[in-house]
């Protein structure tokens, strides 16, 4: 069942098109990774989801309701953490957490205390004295101590230390195991790889790739390291071979998944001594999509 559904979402600011026909679907109990370079439209999409920006065309539905017109109803069941947390300088962290929980309408004191301990947050300090990471902890505690069905997290860990990052990941995992859904926008790819069931990559306001990590890997290249008895010749003439580098006795290169069969057949003629294959990391995927379009289609670089 889909919890969040974005259909053909377009958002223009004057002449500038920030989002162009974006489609996203997040299902119940699913963690959806939303990645893309700075300025690609991640935060704009999220703000449309929150009903604070109005879609120019298309729209977003959360829990089957319209994100703009039913915002208040929807927000009772979601929790949001922005990447850049600004708080009221003369309230304490604890006061802000309570305020947020109260506004949402839930009240889970034990969960609140547990999270404050887990995140090692001092809730008695005024927000003006908090560092970026601590302000983020306040927002995270407020979000996870509420009983939400969908968590919208916009680069929530950009100021956290690795230890707290770990705590954050546990929180997301707990939420998932309870059947909650998460939309996680992040630049920390290892985090996305670890947590997310499905990933969408956005670039210049358009979703250019979406699917499970496995599906995405199929669309892309496999890293191969090959050592052969005879030197491999004319490898660069084959279709779908990229980034050939000489390494020790062997060659390392990338192969487009659909050409893998042909390439292996070609290479095996030279007598394979050693063959290492590695799936592309998310970073590989990411880097490939981050490069501009012509570079990608240009093949061997």
């Amino acid at each position: 069942m889909s919890v969040l559904e974005v259909r053909n979402l377009t958002k223009r600011f004057g002449k500038f098109t920030a989002l162009n026909g974006v489609n996203i679907e997040v299902n119940e109990g699913e963690v959806y990774g939303f990645i893309g370079p700075n300025g690609a439209g991640k935060s704009t999409t999220i703000r449309v989801l929150l009903g604070i920006l109005k879609a120019t065309e298309g729209g977003a539905k959360i829990f089957g309701k319209d994100a703009w017109s039913d915002a208040v109803e929807i927000h009772k069941r979601i929790a949001y953490v922005p990447g850049d947390v600004n708080l009221w300088p003369n309230l304490t962290g604890g006061e802000v957490i309570d305020l947020f929980v109260k506004l949402r309408g839930g009240n889970n004191k034990s969960r609140r205390e547990e999270l404050i301990n887990k995140f090692n947050l001092d809730p008695t300090k005024k927000c003006r004295t908090y560092s970026k990471g601590n302000r983020q902890k306040v927002a995270l505690v407020a979000a996870f101590s509420s009983d939400a069905d969908l968590y919208i997290l916009d680069e929530p860990t950009s100021g956290l230390d690795p230890l707290m990052e770990q705590v954050f990941q546990e929180c997301v995992m707990d939420a998932k195991s309870e059947g909650k859904s998460v939309l996680l926008s992040s630049h920390i790819l290892s985090e996305v790889e670890k947590l997310c069931d499905r990933v969408g990559i956005i670039r210049q306001g358009e979703i250019i790739e979406t699917g499970t990590l496995n599906e995405l890997r199929h669309l892309t290249r496999t890293n191969l390291l090959v050592e052969t008895k005879q030197p491999i010749t004319s490898l660069n003439e084959l279709k779908g071979v990229h980034d050939i580098e000489e390494k020790d006795q062997g060659l390392s290169f990338q192969v487009d998944t659909e050409e893998l069969d042909a390439v292996i057949k070609h290479v095996s003629k030279f007598g394979i001594v050693k063959l290492e294959s590695a799936p592309p990391t998310l970073e590989d995927l990411f880097m490939r999509h981050y490069e501009s379009k012509d570079e990608v289609s240009g093949g061997v670089s």
Binding site: R47, L50, G51, I52, A71, V72, E73, I74, H75, K76, I78, A79, Y80, P82, D84, V85, N86, L87, W88, F100, L103, R104, G105, A139, I152
Partner: peptide
Amino acid sequence: GRTEMVRALP
């Protein structure tokens, strides 16, 4: 950016 967080609540 404080209003944004409040508006993300109901």
